[in-house]
Design a protein around this nucleic acid. Structure first.
Length: 786
DNA sequence: AGCTGTGGCAGGGAGG
DNA sequence: CCTCCCTGCCAC
């Protein structure tokens, strides 16, 4: 077994960590014969017990940096020394015997500074590990959901007001047991005590909830505070420890309050859903109800209650509210069942507990494996290098318009394949852990995938799938880690080498396709859309073509057929629409449709695309006139023309920046400010434009969507008509100017006649010769020629 | 206290 | 009008 992947096999998993004395821990492993005790010396961790101070130094001071010239920037991590002094002596001895003389007292240690947080965190986390050896199935998971009664409309922020209260705590677990705490029979303090009692009695390993970090837990804690109740739900009798945290899913950042419950793990399904959509990017919302529907987990008789109506239902119709709360926990369980498997299986090989793994990013996971190996080898760990990555994926568009038929090919795992193929790993990784990890994880994933395909048991298949997909996410992050500014082992030059090799590879593929008579339409990073040559338009010939393409590429790089489409609307780079043979339409990119658009616009554009791909110009014209009149006659609902924006920053920060002149005013923030409600980053604001000016300044003419009154519609008709025309403009390149005017016109003087209107296909302009030339010489030519 | 990357496009606002 | 800058959204 490769120590790098220690713990992947079930019989190597830690089942319990028991503290022996102040400085060591005893580890128990599970194997086929049951639980056995293992000599801790093999285990490559430093166990510091639960004392925060050893030799008078906080635990984090055990990781130090020497500032001597020869080893500036390196940290040494220690694992088996009994005292700080031994550790320092070892390190100094290793690098510089002279320096030892300087260290005579604690005062001399001032030149040692805490350097590497990741290392410190790593050690501290492992020291706290309480993960019991369990299968995903045997984990005792408890779902929690609360409903609150508020005098005002915004319950959460009012959690401190005595007149608001928790009315319902719904719990459910995978032992088929359900419990509902009914506020009518208890005071709130009684209810909170009862919650504590039940959790301790049921003793769950995991507590799950949707948005549990930002709502349920903090709310409960606040109410406990108010009523002086101690929420002692830790396995050691402690109360939850909370701290503010932030994760960013790509450019979106998400703030939440992490709660740590001793001996238990908290899983927030909201975070799981966001993490899932980070790669898929096709969900409209991350709310529980939508997510449950998205994954097909909704029961047919599910009860729905609007958030604002909860107080009313509690007063008038409590039974349906209770049913609603139980449906919430039921969906949370199913959601977690679906999504938490990836984190669970990764926990087996990462030096972090389940709850932590579930909220960690990919880079931190990779780094933890690297650091563990360096600790095992007692090798120094590099510091992050400063710099930036300069290149990314190759993106290009060759032709715009409606085209077809279309074939999409892509390189499987482009960046990982390149890294393995060209042996690209960080220069600072002297022990070669990075490449070994990448290789081993890739092999492991392929094996797991094969095992999945072999398996005939549905449950087992699901388990294997969860494992292989969690590995896939991890493997794909190795490239990102190279260019990650805070990565201890980052290497920007190597990150650039990966992307440049990718670009060269794509150019090679493009020229191959063109040489065979294909018409390349669009390229993005690892995939190519093209119109196959006439002779090739059958699936069998396509596969032959793919084989030839694969043979033209280096060993270890494989190309796959990703999709076949009837037609494609090629609009701009990263922006296109596809019509499948099953008549479904996929729209990609933010410039055709995006979440930031008014809903009527989104629907309008989607329908336009449908008409265009199906060459239905009469419908297109009718569509335009229909929407035109709906706007004119105030027939749209506020939901259709309101714009919904997500607040990224606290309102106070926005105000400060506007005051300082470093930021422009923005309608969404102005509406939020004037509403006087407590907004947090991540909250959504819906607003619409008022007035008569077709070109208004948004932040001067905006109103909150819930102020709109159907009986006195005051939306700016001129503005929304202008928006309609802006949306139509997107299709201008498809028509001659006259044809465009004829189609997108509400002028009914002459009936619309589509005769003679042809959709245009335009070759994209050759702007940058260097990037546009697929045959441009590259430093990777030798590699490509094999 | 925690955080994987680059590239392309749209729209608002400010200022020329 | 236009250009520039910034933010937001999205593809990979």
């Amino acid at each position: 077994m490769n120590p790098l992947l220690y713990g992947y096999n079930a019989d190597e998993r830690i089942v319990a960590v028991q503290q022996k004395d102040d400085s060591t821990m005893r580890i128990y492993f599970r194997d086929s014969g049951g639980v056995r005790h293992e000599d801790e010396s093999f285990f490559p961790f430093l166990f510091l017990g639960d004392r925060h101070y050893i030799d008078g130094f906080p635990r984090k001071h055990w990781i130090k940096k020497l500032e001597g010239d020869a080893f500036l920037g390196y940290v040494c991590a220690f694992e088996e020394w009994s005292s700080m002094w031994d550790a320092v002596r070892f390190m100094v001895d290793l690098y510089n015997r002279d320096a030892l003389k300087k260290i005579e007292s604690y005062a001399d240690l001032e030149f040692l500074r805490v350097y590497s947080d990741p290392v410190a965190q790593y050690l501290m986390q492992t020291g706290r590990t309480l993960f019991k050896g369990m299968t995903f199935e045997s984990l005792h998971r408890l779902q929690l959901d609360i409903e609150t009664y508020t005098a005002g409309r915004y319950g959460f922020s009012n959690a401190g007001r005595p007149q608001d209260r928790i009315i319902l705590i719904a719990l459910s677990d995978n032992k088929g047991w359900q419990h509902l705490i009914d506020g009518r029979k208890m005071t709130e303090p009684q209810m909170l005590n009862e919650l504590t009692r039940i959790i301790n009695e049921k003793d769950p390993d995991v507590i799950e909830g949707h948005n549990i970090f930002n709502f349920d837990i903090p709310y409960i804690l606040k109410r406990c505070d108010l009523h002086n109740v101690s929420l002692a739900i830790g396995r050691d009798g402690s109360t939850p420890r909370t701290f503010d945290s932030r994760t960013s899913f790509a450019e979106r950042s998400f703030e939440y309050t992490v709660a740590d419950i001793a001996g238990r793990h908290i899983i927030d399904t909201l975070l799981l859903v966001q993490g899932y959509d980070m790669t898929k990017r096709e969900m409209e919302s991350y709310g529980l109800k939508y997510a449950a529907r998205y994954f097909g987990l909704t029961s047919p008789d599910r009860t729905y209650i609007q958030g604002s109506k909860i107080s009313w239902h509690w007063d008038n119709d409590p039974e349906s509210l209770m049913a609603y709360a139980l449906d919430d926990v039921d969906e949370t369980r199913k959601l977690s069942e679906q999504l938490s498997g990836t984190s669970f299986y990764l926990t087996q090989m990462l030096p972090f507990n389940y709850g932590h793994v579930a909220r960690m990013g990919s880079a931190a996971k990779i780094e933890s494996l690297m650091v563990r190996e360096y600790l095992r080898l007692k090798h120094s760990i590099p510091k992050p290098t400063k710099g930036t990555q300069t290149t990314g994926g190759y993106t290009d568009i060759f032709v715009t318009g409606i085209l077809g038929p279309i074939v999409h090919v892509d390189v499987e795992s482009l960046y990982p394949s390149i890294m393995i193929n060209l042996k690209i790993s960080p220069a600072t990784d002297e022990c070669g852990a990075f490449m070994t990890l990448l290789r081993e994880l890739t092999t492991l994933r392929l094996d797991t995938k094969k095992a999945m395909q072999r398996s005939s048991n549905a449950d087992e298949k699901t388990r294997f799938d969860a494992r292989q997909s969690s590995l896939k996410i991890l493997i794909n992050s190795f490239y990102g880690y190279l260019g990650y500014g805070r990565g201890l082992f980052n290497d920007y030059a190597k990150a650039d080498a990966v992307t440049k090799a990718g670009q060269a590879l794509l150019r090679k593929m493009i020229s191959h396709i063109q040489a065979e008579g294909g018409k390349v339409v669009e390229v993005d990073t690892d995939g190519i859309f093209f119109v196959p040559p006439e002779a090739m338009q059958s699936e069998e010939v396509e596969h032959k073509f793919l084989e030839r393409l694969s043979r033209a590429l280096p060993e270890g790089i494989s190309v796959a057929l990703d999709g076949r489409y009837k037609k494609m609307l090629s609009y701009k780079m990263k922006n296109y629409a596809l019509l499948g043979y099953d008549r479904t339409i996929k729209v990609k990119g933010s410039s055709l449709t995006s979440r930031s658009m008014e809903r009527f616009g989104r629907n309008y554009i989607l329908q336009c695309i449908d008409c265009l791909l199906n060459n239905n110009l009469v419908s297109l014209h009718n569509l335009y006139t229909g929407v035109y009149h709906s706007i004119m006659e105030h027939k749209l609902d506020v939901k259709d023309f309101a714009r919904v924006e997500t607040l990224k920053e606290p309102l106070s920060e926005y105000s400060r920046q506007v005051e300082a002149g470093t930021r422009n005013r923005s309608a969404a923030y102005e509406v939020a400010l004037s509403a006087g409600k407590p907004f947090r980053p991540g909250n959504k604001v819906a607003y619409y434009i008022t007035g008569n000016d077709a070109n208004p300044r948004g932040f001067d003419n905006c109103k909150s969507a819930d102020e709109w009154d159907q009986n006195f519609p005051d939306e700016n008709t001129a503005f929304y008509l202008r928006r309609l025309d802006e949306f139509s403009e997107k299709f201008k390149p498809l028509f001659t100017p006259q044809d465009f005017r004829a189609v997108f016109s509400a002028d009914d003087l002459f009936p619309f006649d589509p005769t003679g209107i042809a959709l245009l296909i335009i070759d994209a302009e050759q702007t940058e010769t260097e990037t546009k030339n697929p045959n441009a010489p590259s430093e990777f030519d030798i590699w490509l020629e094999g």
